[in-house]
Amino acid sequence: MTAEAPDPDHKTGLSTRRTADGAEIGALIGAGFGLLFLIINTGQFSTLGRTLVIAVGVIVFAGIAVLAVRGLLRNRGGGGRLGESGTRGRREPPFGRAYWIIVLIEAVLLFAGARLLTSLGHPELGVAWVAVVVGTHFYALGRVFGLDRFHVLATVVTLCGIGGFIAFFAAAPAFIPVISGVISGFVLLAFAVWALTPTER
């Protein structure tokens, strides 16, 4: 029988549960969008309702920010992770050309779509359009950041955007900011928390 190679994690006592590469940055981006969705789309709520929704959003965002910053500082301090090849290391944050191209395309689509909907006399569909664009852009960001969970996020938020268009055609425009705005906001915050959940490595 051949002796098994020692597991470096067992020798050093390190846990094999780690967050995915790019999780901290991805979580901050998703949580930021989520909080913004809540702030913008609760204008029709009562004062108490709006205050409660935004308060919950701020508390969740603050928790995500603390966990994400702690993770980034820990990684910078040398607590590297095991890459997919099994070697210890940490990818640099992927703020390269691909990332900025995605952001540029997203900004153009958001602006152009909102202007078009307004010119057609349906500015209330703007939030639904934003949810569709933000949702689909997470497909690309999930690939750039190497965060497959964001593909699930992309699907759910995009469906929230489509739900807003369905509400419009169903003659229920009052539900558009709730479906495409508030629900999307909480979905983004929830998935940001999920992104920071350690997985087996």
Results as ranks from 00 to 15, higher is better:
residue 191 F to V: 05
residue 62 A to L: 12
residue 195 A to Y: 04
residue 17 R to M: 11
residue 43 G to I: 01
residue 131 A to P: 08
residue 56 V to M: 12
residue 98 A to V: 11
residue 46 S to A: 03
residue 55 A to L: 15
residue 117 L to C: 00
residue 20 A to P: 01
residue 74 R to P: 02
residue 50 R to Q: 14
residue 165 F to M: 00
residue 184 S to R: 10
residue 114 A to P: 00
residue 141 L to K: 04
residue 11 K to A: 14
residue 84 E to G: 04
residue 180 S to M: 02
residue 125 L to A: 00
residue 167 A to S: 11
residue 86 G to A: 07
residue 18 R to L: 13
residue 36 L to T: 13
residue 77 G to W: 01
residue 86 G to K: 15
residue 22 G to R: 02
residue 201 R to D: 10
residue 157 V to D: 02
residue 123 P to K: 10
residue 62 A to W: 13
residue 12 T to A: 14
residue 152 V to W: 07
residue 107 A to F: 03
residue 95 F to V: 12
residue 153 L to D: 02
residue 195 A to H: 01
residue 52 L to P: 02
residue 49 G to Q: 04
residue 80 G to W: 02
residue 53 V to G: 04
residue 160 C to A: 11
residue 40 I to Q: 08
residue 42 T to M: 01
residue 106 E to W: 03
residue 8 P to N: 11
residue 138 F to Y: 15
residue 68 A to F: 11
residue 89 G to N: 11
residue 188 L to I: 04
residue 79 G to Q: 08
residue 158 T to N: 03
residue 86 G to P: 14
residue 8 P to D: 12
residue 72 L to D: 02
residue 9 D to N: 15
residue 63 G to S: 03
residue 42 T to Y: 00
residue 174 A to L: 10
residue 37 F to D: 03
residue 97 R to D: 12
residue 46 S to E: 02
residue 179 I to L: 13
residue 192 A to G: 15
residue 16 T to N: 08
residue 159 L to P: 04
residue 172 A to S: 11
residue 200 E to M: 06
residue 195 A to F: 09
residue 29 I to T: 10
